[in-house]
Nucleic acid binder design. Structure first.
Lengths: 247, 247
DNA sequence: GGCAAGGGTTGACGTGGATCAAACCGATAC
DNA sequence: GTATCGGTTTGATCCACGTCAACCCTTGCC
């Protein structure tokens, strides 16, 4: 029988960045082994989040950021009248919670799309360590900046693209991220509903569904519910670059 | 005749945060006098940017971030086919260039909307100093996080609001920012064209123009070209919270 | 097995904002 | 003064996407 010497978290396991196969995608990227060990020390442990449950909610006090160890999440903001805008879908190795730094309060909700697990990184300690470890500081700044660049991409999508371009961009983006994680870039399972995709892309679920069907008819992808197989990657890319007005 | 002892910049002036009336809105916020002096040391000087000129362009190597000392800017991203998406309008005290950190290359264009001036903050040195000065580190993180939260707001706007709501939100946001700078929140001059507003809001300039006219007809604002006077602030706010479907 | 519930698809129709086009306005240039 | 030009306004028409509604498929429960 196994002893649980460091049963300090709900999962009974201490996070260990150095052993984590996501470290190249995550905060430890670019750190030396010794530096990663120091990062390990401050990771307060892991936390499991069940499907449909919140990791944090808008208005909650900000204390830590989170690295996704398993599973996936969506973040969204709500308007007073109930309208929801999904601001992003996050997968393993990606960091959640950066929105909370500015006001010391979370400004959006983070919800697990499937049973998931995160590493909890207390923010005050992260700042402290990144004052000592230059490469950690730099990597953290890069992570934040990447989020800003990503957001600009979404604005481009929402502000300047038509429905099919948006969906194509969405699929290509997912494909790329699955590939970076060692999964097939051509075949994957969507964790979110049509409604959530629609909210993210600024479309109604019916429009998303129709666009999927159209892609299928055109032989670009094979869609079976949430299962996606990309057949013609180049075709999708072409859709993106000059669809709007095929001048 | 006056000597220019520190003529190290095009403007012949060393930036001095401690003397700057924008410091409460800018990077020095929350620093002690002594800490601000250290920040002063690293500000490489000021740079003037003429109306319509670029402060930096997409693809340019990233070396510094910029604090706007006078004037205003827009940032935009371009698609291969020429479509433009304005990702933000920045005014005095706000920080430009954060997009460049992630890839060490700027990912958008920053263009002066009027003759403007920025303080140049070499990024490597900023990171170095913020390893020593905790309050600077924290304030910098807040600035980056604020940008992320702002971007989420724009996504909300682009993804879930109708034309008039978007314009109302835009005007209210400008109003708030002018107020924070000691200007009238009710009466101001737009520095951007209808086309640029449209690009930012995901609308065509004609739609922006029509929405302005509608607001005018309804007695919400007085519009004279680029001069705006907000007459009914509450009315604009009301538009925002439950216009979509007045259920 | 039947049946309920939640998500997805598809069709018919309506509409908000895009598009196209003309005119207007205020600057600056001559 | 007139011409020019960039930006803006306004009107007429169009179409991409939203809305509403029916139906289907899958899963889980009794």
């Amino acid at each position: 029988m196994q002893m649980k010497a460091t049963a300090i978290t709900p999962t009974g396991l201490k996070a260990v960045c150095s052993q984590c196969n996501l470290r190249e995608l995550c905060l430890p990227f670019g750190l030396t082994g010794e530096e990663i060990d120091r990062l390990d020390e401050l990771v307060a442990g892991r936390r499991k989040v069940r499907r449909q449950h919140h990791l944090y909610s808008a208005g909650a006090p900000f204390e830590a950021i989170y690295a996704i160890r398993a599973g996936s999440f969506k973040t969204d903001v709500l308007l007073e009248d109930g309208r929801e805008q999904v601001t992003g879908f996050q997968m393993t190795g990606e960091i959640l919670g950066l929105d909370g730094i500015s006001s010391e309060t979370h400004s959006c909700n983070a919800t697990a799309l499937e049973d998931s697990e995160v590493c909890v990184i207390p923010f005050g300690q992260l700042e402290e360590l990144s004052r000592q470890v230059e490469s950690l500081q730099h990597q953290f700044h890069k992570v934040m900046s990447r989020e800003i660049v990503r957001d600009h991409g979404v604005m481009m999508l929402l502000g300047s693209m038509r429905a099919e371009e948006r969906l194509a961009a969405f699929l290509l983006n997912l494909s790329k991220r699955f590939m970076a994680r060692g999964y097939s870039p051509a075949e994957f399972h969507l964790r979110m509903t049509r409604d959530e995709i629609g909210s993210y892309l600024g479309l109604k679920l019916e429009t998303v569904s129709r666009a999927f069907s159209k892609f299928q008819d055109e032989g670009l992808v094979a869609v079976h519910q949430k299962h996606i197989r990309i057949i013609d990657l180049e075709g999708l890319r072409r859709l993106l670059t000059h669809c709007a007005k095929q001048t």
